[in-house]
């Protein structure tokens, strides 16, 4: 489950119960290194590149991805964070309050933006993020990196860099944390 679901889970309500560990922490690390190489290959380096993590689950991954990019290319890559609460389409369906800060260090005009999130599911968060990024300037291109693509898209959105493609049932939950990636579901406490 993405970080926001984790936070919204009410105490005393349903809790996440993992039934299988899909990626070990070392698998996540290896995937990040591979994705960093793919990003550099696709963009012929990291010039004009900026990595932006989606609050909150995408930010730790974006931080690690950016560290790999800097290490491999020996150059500096800016890092930003983005909270998309004000761009969502589900007000009134569930609580939508911003959780964390949006910090985009520069105008995005003519930049190559790598947007990072933990789990790609319906695509609605990414849709909101694209709208939000447009308000920070006209990027040259926006690419999407996710640790897990679990399918069930509701919008025509496709990731550019994927840690793992994970077929899931719609009612399952994917949890990305320091302990790796787990597949499970919400169960009564």
């Amino acid at each position: 489950m993405a970080e926001r679901e984790r936070k919204l889970a009410k105490p005393g309500g349903k809790v996440f119960s993992a039934h299988s560990l899909v990626m070990e922490p070392t698998d996540v690390s290896r995937a990040l290194i591979r994705m960093a190489h793919e990003i550099i290959e696709r963009n012929h380096g990291v010039g004009d590149l900026i990595v932006i993590g989606l609050q909150t689950g995408g930010v730790p991954l974006a931080t690690r991805l950016r560290a790999h990019l800097e290490e491999i290319t020996h150059s500096l890559v800016p890092l930003g964070t983005l909270d998309v609460a004000f761009y969502r389409d589900d007000y009134g369906i569930r609580p939508v309050l911003p959780e964390e800060v949006t910090l985009i260090p520069c105008d995005l005009t003519q930049k190559t933006v790598v947007l990072v999130d933990d789990v790609l599911f319906t695509g609605r968060t990414v849709r909101a993020a694209l709208d939000a990024l447009a308000d920070h300037g006209r990027a040259r291109c926006i690419q999407l990196a996710v640790m897990v693509d679990r399918g069930h898209r509701e919008l025509p959105i496709k990731p550019d860099y994927v840690g793992k493609n994970l077929p899931t049932r719609r009612d399952e939950m994917v949890d990305v944390s320091d302990q790796g990636v787990a597949l499970g579901e919400l169960v009564d406490k």
Binding site: F86, Y87, Y91, V101, T102, I104, D135, H136, G137
Partner: peptide, 19 residues
Amino acid sequence: KLASFFSEVAKRPIPKVPV
């Protein structure tokens, strides 16, 4: 806390959100 998020919005190139 919510207002502090909106202060950040005011500093954006397009200081407006579509909510």
